[in-house]
């Protein structure tokens, strides 16, 4: 059983813009899935169509095996959606926002109270439950959006940029919470601009560009496709003169930093050996970008060619 199945999905807006051009993908139940793409690629349109906020032009979508056209209401029963932009009533309390969403899903008042408390506590908002939404910080509002989407205890949670604009601490707390939910068997589908986030959290990934699906694979497979990974080395002293690193490509950076391209299959030991051979001391080392980011850029580059 797939949590989400999309078959040949297209969307043409009345303005004539074709936002989705025949996308097909499947997300297994219990997966942690990232939908990536540059701005305007069609990610939010895709999520809008899945959550029935946007009417598709053609194609089929099933959520937990239920076709959204044949079973429009049932297919949404197990779905939670966190929109990219805040859609919160600024005059309601944090508690009421989540509690009412439970009611809209058809939960009894008692069940809605239980779920509201559970998710407000899980997202560290319980102490702020009586504050009006307008009194909450941006990060709290973002977490409130997640609590609101989860209150129905759905099996599929879709998050459109769930950690946009939140501080590092909150982002990591949200990651932990999402991992916990995924550990309970919930399918999580997210879009994000933080590729580190997708790399840290997700097992599978799809990349959309210009309304087309250009990659749909596991994160590890995508990373394996990387031909070269770039590392930055902070040297004990600035480099003087030329450096021969046994055929490895390298470039100077500011100060005492150099970046070295390491082809797939090579180990870092080789770089360190070359540095030792040249009498160069290395203080620290880091990757230039997240590996997924490199894979993402590489996929987009191949698509554009």
């Amino acid at each position: 059983m797939f949590a989400l199945e999309i078959e040949d999905l297209t969307k043409v807006y009345p303005s004539g813009i074709q936002a989705l051009k025949g996308i097909s993908l499947r997300v297994p139940e219990g997966d942690f899935f990232a939908l990536l793409g540059p701005n305007g690629a069609g990610k939010s349109t895709c999520i809008g169509v899945i959550s029935s906020l946007i009417i598709k032009t053609s194609g089929c979508i099933s959520i937990s095996g239920l076709d959204i056209d044949a079973e429009p209401h049932l297919s949404r029963a197990g779905l939670g959606v966190v929109a990219q932009e805040f859609n919160l009533n600024m005059f309601e309390t944090a508690y009421d926002v989540v509690f009412r969403q439970g009611g809209y899903h058809g939960l009894s008042r008692r069940q809605s109270r239980i779920n509201t408390e559970r998710y407000l506590r899980a997202l560290q908002l319980w102490d702020r439950r009586d504050l009006k939404v307008r009194e909450l910080s941006g990060g709290m509002k973002r977490r409130l959006m997640v609590a609101k989407a989860m209150v129905n205890d759905g099996s599929v949670l879709i998050l459109d940029e769930p950690t946009a604009g939140v501080d590092v601490e909150t982002r990591h707390a949200t990651w932990d919470f999402l991992r916990e939910l995924n550990g309970e068997g919930k399918t999580i589908i997210l879009t994000t601009h933080y590729l580190e986030e997708a790399e840290q959290l997700c097992r599978d990934v799809a990349i959309i560009n210009n309304g087309e699906l250009i990659a749909n694979t596991s994160v590890s497979d995508l990373l394996h496709q990387l031909e070269v990974e770039t590392f930055i080395f902070d040297l004990a002293a600035p480099l003087e003169g030329e450096l021969r690193l046994g055929g490895l490509e390298w470039r100077r950076r500011e100060g005492s930093e150099v970046e070295v391209d390491l082809p797939q299959g090579e180990t870092l030991n080789r770089v360190f050996a070359e540095f030792s051979r040249c009498g160069i001391e290395v203080i620290s080392m880091r990757t230039r970008a997240s590996r997924l980011e490199e894979a993402f850029v590489s996929s987009l580059g191949e698509y554009q060619q």
Binding site: S51, S52, L53, H73, L74, R76, A77, L79, G80, V81, A83, E85, N87, L88, N89, M90, R100, Q101, Y104, H105, G106, K148, N152
Partner: peptide
């Protein structure tokens, strides 16, 4: 206007 209607539209409420 406040896009709160989306909260209803994503639920199974007929």
């Amino acid at each position: 206007f406040m896009r709160l209607i989306e909260d209803l539209l994503v639920t199974p409420t007929p």
